[in-house]
């Protein structure tokens, strides 16, 4: 997918790796890696955000997500059924012991409902993930290009 822009994004990825890694947030046994979002069209009411939670310790549960970027923040999951993309709210997400949970397009995602401002490529905004045991973990999401499905640092890593 998108192999034609691969060479270009490889170069971009190099430029992204350092700030992207810098955005990783570790709290106790939990690491939230590379939170990202997507630029929105002017006037668009919603945005989405993604990240990966890596758990080096015991099981924990992600209870909710907060962000000043939107008036309402929900966790949703998308899935395709018979050619139809469906979306359902998720009340909490279990993070297995020594396991990982990935929020990604067409899967689990953070729904930023009623954005307070449009998201522009390169912008950063805070997300606070509230865990049952680890408590609140604050991370910064980096806004990628409009329409991004795979962030530059994941290009070529196979989906």
């Amino acid at each position: 997918m998108y192999t034609h822009i691969h060479r270009l994004t490889f170069l971009l990825a190099l430029a992204w790796v350092i700030p992207a890694l810098a955005a990783d947030q570790r709290t106790g046994s939990l690491t939230i890696t590379q939170p990202w979002s997507r630029a929105t069209a002017p006037g668009a009411a919603i945005g989405a955000a993604y990240f990966e939670i890596v758990n080096a310790g015991a099981v924990d549960t992600l209870l909710r997500i907060e962000s000043p970027i939107a008036r309402q923040v929900e966790m949703h999951t998308s899935y395709t059924e018979g050619g139809t993309m469906r979306m359902r709210p998720v009340t909490s997400v279990d993070v297995p012991a020594r396991g990982r949970v990935r929020f990604e397009p067409s899967g689990l995602h953070v729904m930023l409902i009623d954005l307070v401002r449009p998201l522009r490529k390169g912008d950063r905004f805070p997300l606070t993930l509230v865990f049952q045991h680890a408590g609140p973990v604050r991370v910064e999401a980096i806004v990628q290009d409009l329409g991004t499905l795979i962030p530059p640092w994941r290009e070529g890593h196979g989906q």
Binding site: R38, A44, A45, I46, S78, G147, T148
Partner: peptide
């Protein structure tokens, strides 16, 4: 629809 989280922006971006 414009409130679509990823399928619609991805499809329109690709068509662009």
């Amino acid at each position: 629809y414009t409130r679509c989280p990823d399928a619609c922006p991805a499809a329109l971006f690709k068509l662009a």
